[in-house]
């Protein structure tokens, strides 16, 4: 089942990602969002030393910069005017709004990068199979076909290339035609073969009655404790949010960014939720270092 965060039950992890996604779109205090981004970056670092994050870096940077730079110029709401650009006012409010939006999106992106690593294939399907079993099974089957299809594609490309059909050389029209011909063979061949897949399902009793899904993950005491931990801090954070903490007023006129004592409470409990994977990994590290 893996170590550290990978040993946590998928439900707990799913709850974690839901909470983070909720936070990213619920709070709009720049400090909260910044802390969220940093926390998630730290979470990603514990997964794979940031390898996946690096791959997404160009997307994240360009999107963030685009929103931050463009928003003030296409939006002229707000009262604190910096300067005029082509007769339009560029305001503090619009700038801050851009920053808040981009950070919220960044947080969501970071969340998904982490989710793609932790709740990979089978785990996320396991969650959905409890709600939509047939659909989840269909997706599982489809995912299982993908590597098979890729291998078949290589075979077909080899054969058809010698036959004179290539996507590497020629006009765009001919290349697109070759590509589609290759797909056509893949389609005809694979659908033909898939009958045997269906037969093998039938031979093993698929569709004879209610399925009893195999449950590969067991909720342990640790999982329960973590879930309680997450739930408590999530509730505190959301309750605080409804009372207005962790949020600012941007339009029509920028409100205060000041942190009240209760803001700190909400902030801390948010962090406690967001840093949950780091805590799990840290605990494991400590155990490794100090036991035996």
């Amino acid at each position: 089942m893996g170590n550290g965060i990978h040993s946590i039950h998928p439900f707990v992890m799913f709850f974690y990602y839901l909470s983070i996604g909720f936070f990213a779109m619920f709070f709009n205090h720049p400090a909260f969002l910044l802390a969220g981004c940093l926390a998630l970056a730290a979470v990603n670092l514990t997964h794979d030393r940031g390898t996946a994050m690096k791959q997404w870096m160009p997307v994240m940077v360009s999107m963030t910069l685009l929103i931050i730079l463009v928003n003030p110029f296409i939006n002229s709401r707000g009262t604190h005017i910096f300067f005029y650009f082509r007769g339009k006012q560029v305001t503090l409010e619009a700038t801050l709004y851009g920053v808040v939006t981009s950070m919220s999106l960044l947080m969501v992106l970071l969340l998904f990068i982490s989710l793609n690593i932790v709740l990979n294939g089978n785990k996320i399907l396991y969650i959905f199979s409890r709600i939509l079993p047939k659909t989840a099974f269909l997706i599982m089957l489809s995912i299982r076909f993908v590597p098979l299809l890729k291998r078949r594609l290589t075979e077909i490309q080899d054969v058809q290339r010698v036959k004179g059909m290539t996507i590497k050389q020629g006009t765009i029209r001919n290349r697109a035609k070759s590509g589609m011909s290759i797909l056509q063979i893949l389609l005809a061949w694979s659908l033909e073969e898939a009958i045997e897949t269906a037969d093998s399902m039938k031979a093993r009793g698929y569709g004879t009655g209610k399925r009893s899904p195999y449950i590969p993950y067991r909720i342990t005491k640790t999982d329960q404790n973590w879930l309680i931990y997450l739930a408590i801090f999530f509730i505190i954070s959301v309750a605080g949010g409804f009372l207005g903490y962790g949020k600012i007023i941007i339009y029509p006129k920028l409100g205060t960014l000041h942190f009240y004592p209760l803001d700190w409470v909400v902030f801390t409990s948010c962090l406690a939720v967001m840093l949950f994977p780091v805590l799990v990994e840290g605990r494991e590290q400590l155990k490794w270092n100090y036991s035996a």
Binding site: I143, L148, E193, E196, T197, D199, S200, M201
Partner: peptide
């Protein structure tokens, strides 16, 4: 069945 690949339905 004959073909080892066609009979497999799950991803694990």
């Amino acid at each position: 069945f004959q073909d080892p690949d066609n009979q497999i339905v799950m991803d694990e």
